[in-house]
Amino acid sequence: MEKAVRLDASGTGRASRLSEKTKDGLFLAAIISPALLLLLFTIGIPIVKSLYLSFYDVTLLRMKSLSWNGFANYRNLFADGDFGHSVAVTFRYVFTIVALQFVLGMALALILNGKIPMRRAIRTVVLIPWVIPTIIGALLWMWLFQPQYGIVNYVLQYLHLIDKPLNWLSDIHLALWAVTAAALWKQLPFMVTMLLAGMQGIPGDMYEAAMIDGANKRQQFWYVTLPMLKNTIQTVTLIACIENFKMFPLFWIMTSGGPVDATTTLSILSYKTAFIDLDLGKGAAIGAIWLVIMLLFSWIYNRLFSIGEGKGGGAH
C-alpha cells in the first residue's frame, strides 16, 4: 500500500495522458487485489478443486485414488429422484422464508417508521435475535417446539387452537414450516432494520409532494416508498436468498433432513452424499449444478430488477 502511494506521488511530475491511465490501473489493482487474493485463496481454490472432483470417481473411503469418469456423476445425479426432490424442497424453503421475511419485515418496518412510543428502544430490542448464533437459535426452537413438553404446543392447546400436541419437527407437513419459523425469527430483524434504514433515507419532501398530488397513505407506499427502496430491497432479498439457499446448520440440527425427505435441502443432500453415501464425486457434482443454479438465479434476479426500475421510475 505504501509503495503504491509513492508510485503515485512520483508520477505526478510527468503527468502524461498515458501515465495517468497507468496510474489509475495501478491504483485500482492495489485496492482491489487484497480482497481478490483473499477470496481466491480460501474460497476460489476450494471451489475449483470441488468442480474438478465432480468429474472423478472418488469415494470417502479412498480419497487419494481418483479416476476420471467424465459426466457419470452428473448422470447418476439426474438418474435418481433425490436430486430433483431436494431442489424442489430448497426452492420451496427459500421462496417461503424470503417472501415471509420480506412481507413481515416491511410491515414491521412501516410500523417502526411511524410515530410510536418507545420507538428507539423497540428498534433496538427487535435486533437481539439477529445476534444469536444459528446453532443456538436451532436449539432454542427445538426446545420451544418439543412435542411433549414444549411451550408452543402447550400454549396452542391452552388456547384450544389444537386439540392434541403436534409433532412439529417430525410431521411430514409441518417440519419445513417449523424450520422456517426458526429461520424467520433469526433473520427477520436484519430485514426489518435494513428496510427501516432505507425508509429513513427517503427525503420527506417526496411524501409532501405526493400528498399535494392527493395521494393517500396506500398510494404513497406504492408510488414513493417502494420505488425508493428498490436498491435496498434488491440487496437484502438477494442476500437472504443466497444465505437461505445454502442454509445447513439449522436443518442439520433440527431435523437432519427428515422426516423421510421432507426437509432434505440441497445442502443436506450434498452432505449426505459425501459423508454418508461416501460419494465425494457425486457430492461435488451437486455443488457444481448448485453453482450454476445460483448464478442463473442471480442473473435473472438482476434482470427482473432492472425491468422493475423502468416501471418504478415512471411512477413519478
Binding site: T59, L61, S170, D171, I172, G258, P259, V260, D261, K272, I276, D277, L278
Partner: peptide, 21 residues
C-alpha cells in the same frame, strides 16, 4: 460393508415412511 452405514439410514427412513408418512 462399505454401504452399511448408508443402509442403516435407509432402514431408519423406511421406519419413518411407515410411522410418519
Amino acid at each position: 460393508n462399505q454401504g452399511l452405514e448408508q443402509a442403516y439410514l435407509e432402514i431408519a427412513e423406511a421406519v419413518q415412511k411407515v410411522t410418519v408418512a
